[in-house]
Amino acid sequence: MSSNGDHQRQVDAELLSRVAAGDEEAFARLYDRFSPGLYSMVLKMTGDDAEAQDVLQEAFSHIWRKAMTFDPRRSAAFTWAVMVTRNKCIDRLRVRQRFARIAEKAAAEEQNSPKVDEVSVGLAELNEEKGRVRAALDQVTADQRQAIELAFFNDFTHEEIAERLCTPLGTVKARIRRGLLKLREILEGGHA
C-alpha cells in the first residue's frame, strides 16, 4: 500500500476511534470522508436515490453506535464501513423483496447518474483510491472480476450467479474466493 494510503488509513482509524468515544466533530469528518464512496456503492446496489439515502442514514447511525466494535487490526476503517453499509443495504433489499426490480432500474439509470462535484471534501483521495482499485481489478482475471462484481453489488445467490454465467456452482464459489484473495494480494503488494 502507498504511504499516502497508509496515512489515510491511519487518519480514518483515528477518526473512528474518536467517534467511538462520542466525538460528533470526528463523526462529521468521517461522514465527509466516507459518504461519497458509501453512497455511490449503495446507489449502484439499489438504483434508487431515496432508498440509498435511507440506507446511508441507517449505516451511519450504526457506525455512530457501534464504532467501538471496529478493530483496526482486522481491517481498514473504510472497509469496515463498507461492510456495515452493504449489510444494511442487503437487509433492506431482502426485507422489501424488491431487489430484482430495483436492479433493473439501476442498470438503466446508471448512465444518467449525476456526477460528483470534484471539489467536494475527500474526493481527491476517493478518486485516487478508486483508480488504484480499478487498476488492481484489471489484473484479476475477467471471470473472477465478473463473479466478484455480480456478488458484491447484487443480492444474488451463488446458484443465480452460476446460472447467469453459465458456469458450474463450484467454479463460481472458487472464482469469488480466489478473485478476492488475488485482489487483496495486488493491493497489499502495491502492484496496481
Partner: peptide, 20 residues
C-alpha cells in the same frame, strides 16, 4: 478478515455520485 478486506475495496467500482 482477508476476504472482507478485499471485498471492501470492490465498493470503489461504483461510479462516484455525491450524496445529497
Amino acid at each position: 478478515d482477508q476476504l472482507e478486506d478485499a471485498a471492501g475495496h470492490v465498493a470503489h467500482v461504483a461510479p462516484t455520485v455525491a450524496p445529497p
